[in-house]
Design a protein around this nucleic acid. Structure first.
Length: 262
DNA sequence: TCCTGGACATTTTA
DNA sequence: CTAAAATGTCCAGG
């Protein structure tokens, strides 16, 4: 079990914009892009220093795999964010929730939503999703993730697993529109779930190599950073866990390249 | 033993 | 060549 305490952070966040200087700074972004770029850079630097010492990251490494894991939110904060997201997030319905695998169309065994900057869309397994506008809570979480990582994100894919029967099959996030140098930041809220990485060359009966899977548990309020080149060599999945009876909401923050279309 | 769930490999095209 | 799905087989543990 991973023991750590997340940093103390004011919990009266969403209600009062003035109390959070970072949110104020984000508002300025809409006025002056140049100034904001500077401000963000300085923000990143100061936050890097601020978080370097007290923030307890756990490094997860294997051949071609590079991840960082930390408890980003305390139990109380995570509970609150979970509740807010249950109120705010609108999940896709109908054809938007279908996926094409081995030529057949299926409904995904979970609920999906996509939020991000205006005009962004994300495509995988034959289905494209337009990003909805950031909600206040998603914006807040995005900014905390930025503070903690020093990276910026313009998109978030939300997966909601209603219980341990909902799952995600093995795959890589190897879409062209993803910025390969920006890590994918995966925030977990709700039920803890196992998460499994398997090396591409260790899959299948005739696999050439025997590389052990990397398994971890994603806790309530935790953040997992999947750094380059993890997604080049490793598949990941969220396997079914029948004994899990409560929901998990997963937010994967990404950086999507506008013009990097296929 | 029986039952369940987990770890895989397989599938061959809305 | 790949595949964000479901399904079947095998096996360990209770």
């Amino acid at each position: 079990m991973f023991v750590s305490r997340s940093r103390k952070r004011s919990i009266d966040w969403a209600t009062s914009e003035q109390k959070d200087p970072f949110r104020k700074k984000i508002k300025d972004e809409e006025c002056n892009q140049e100034m904001v770029k500077e401000a963000m850079k300085q923000e990143e630097d100061s936050n890097l220093i601020e978080f370097l010492q007290p923030f307890p990251w756990q490094k997860i490494e294997a051949e071609g795999l590079d991840c960082d894991y930390a408890l980003l939110f305390s139990k109380e904060e995570a509970d609150h964010l979970y509740t807010k997201l249950e109120e705010e997030v609108v999940y896709l319905t109908g054809d938007e929730t279908k996926v094409k695998v081995f030529g057949k169309v299926f409904n995904v065994p979970r609920k999906l939503a996509t939020y991000g900057d205006t005009g962004l869309s994300y495509t995988y397994s034959g289905v494209s999703h337009q990003a909805s506008q950031w909600t206040p809570t998603l914006k807040y979480i995005r900014d905390v993730v930025t503070k903690a990582t020093g990276k910026t994100f313009n998109f978030v894919l939300i997966n909601r697993y209603k219980n341990g029967q909902d799952q995600m099959g093995e795959h890589r996030d190897d879409e062209r529109e993803l910025d390969p140098l920006c890590p994918i930041a995966s925030l977990s809220l709700g039920a803890a779930r196992d998460f499994v990485f398997r090396h591409q060359e260790a899959r299948g009966k005739r696999s050439r190599r025997q590389i052990k899977p990397v398994k971890l548990e994603l806790a309530h309020g935790s953040l997992l950073l999947m750094n380059s080149p993890t997604n080049t060599y490793w598949y990941h999945s969220l396997p079914a866990r029948k004994r899990v009876l409560t929901p998990r909401i997963n937010l994967t923050f990404r950086h999507i390249l506008q013009d990097g279309k296929k």
